[in-house]
């Protein structure tokens, strides 16, 4: 049941996108998000849709996985669509009570929906093809210039990768403790709010204890291997751009150009 939580939901297949440098993918996602806000007519979104389709195809991740990410924003999507639909001024189509639906509203709502869906799917492509570790590696390197102004980039990246690494461990641990307490007759589903909160105690206490135990163990293991921060630390797999990354950057440039052009159609 609890396995369905998907953060850092890497999908392990081999594709051009999986092999790509994380920095390229990070930058690409950013370009894509910017482009979604630049586009303001059907043509722009058509180009964005085309790119997304090609990229999903290249990633070899089943489309169902991308769509799964949309479930999380369904509520947000509904709210923003209805706000745009009912609260935009313009030429009226029909009205129900005080709610007016206008042509402009329909247009805005449709664009808003498309924008949100593409945004989530676009970033899903990145998280599905990049392991959390690669991602933090990419972030650390991309933001490396901030070190000059004394931002502890390495430490922050390390914290992030440890946190990410701990999510599946804690999920598994929760699953295990939950089952162990269920084997002792625990019931996590029925009862009112207070009853439910109370039934969480046998789950949360062991979980906290195990989280602290793991944290001390990890700190000890890191010290035993002489970890002392980022200073002078080298990488086993340093990030290096390959030809496909340069190709990708060229594609971004062309894509942005086309998006800007569609604004004048």
């Amino acid at each position: 049941m609890i396995r369905e939580i998907t953060i850092g939901q890497y999908y392990p297949v081999d594709s051009v996108l999986h092999r790509m440098d994380p920095r390229t993918k990070l930058f690409g996602t950013m370009v894509y998000i910017v482009s979604l806000f630049l586009a303001d007519n059907v043509w722009g979104y058509a180009v964005a849709a085309l790119l997304l389709a090609v990229v999903i195809r290249l990633s070899r991740v089943p489309v169902s996985f991308m769509v799964r990410g949309l479930k999380a924003i369904l509520f947000l999507l509904l709210i923003s669509v209805s706000f745009n639909l009912f609260l935009t001024d313009g030429e009226e189509i029909f009205r129900v009570g005080f709610l007016r639906v206008t042509w402009e509203g329909v247009r805005m709502a449709a664009f808003m929906a498309v924008r949100l869906i593409f945004l989530v799917m676009g970033s899903s492509v990145m998280t599905l093809t990049t392991t959390p570790n690669q991602l933090t590696d990419g972030l650390e390197k991309s933001l490396g210039f901030l070190k000059k102004v004394r931002v502890p980039v390495h430490e922050m990246a390390m914290i992030m990768s440890i946190a990410l690494r701990f999510i599946p461990i804690l999920v598994e641990e929760t699953d295990k403790i939950m089952k162990a307490q269920m084997a002792r007759g625990a019931d996590f589903e029925s009862g009112g709010l207070i009853q439910k909160a109370k039934s969480m105690v046998p789950l949360l206490v062991p979980l906290f204890i195990s989280a602290f135990r793991r944290a001390t163990d990890l700190a000890m293991a890191m010290e035993a291997r002489c970890y002392h921060g980022g200073e002078g630390r080298t990488k086993m797999k340093p990030l290096r751009y390959a030809r496909r990354d340069y190709t990708a950057y060229a594609v971004y440039a062309v894509y942005l150009g086309v998006i800007v052009l569609t604004k004048f159609v």
Partner: peptide, 9 residues
């Protein structure tokens, strides 16, 4: 379970 002492609370 394995390591059942982890479920004590």
């Amino acid at each position: 379970f394995q390591y059942p002492e982890h479920q004590l609370f």
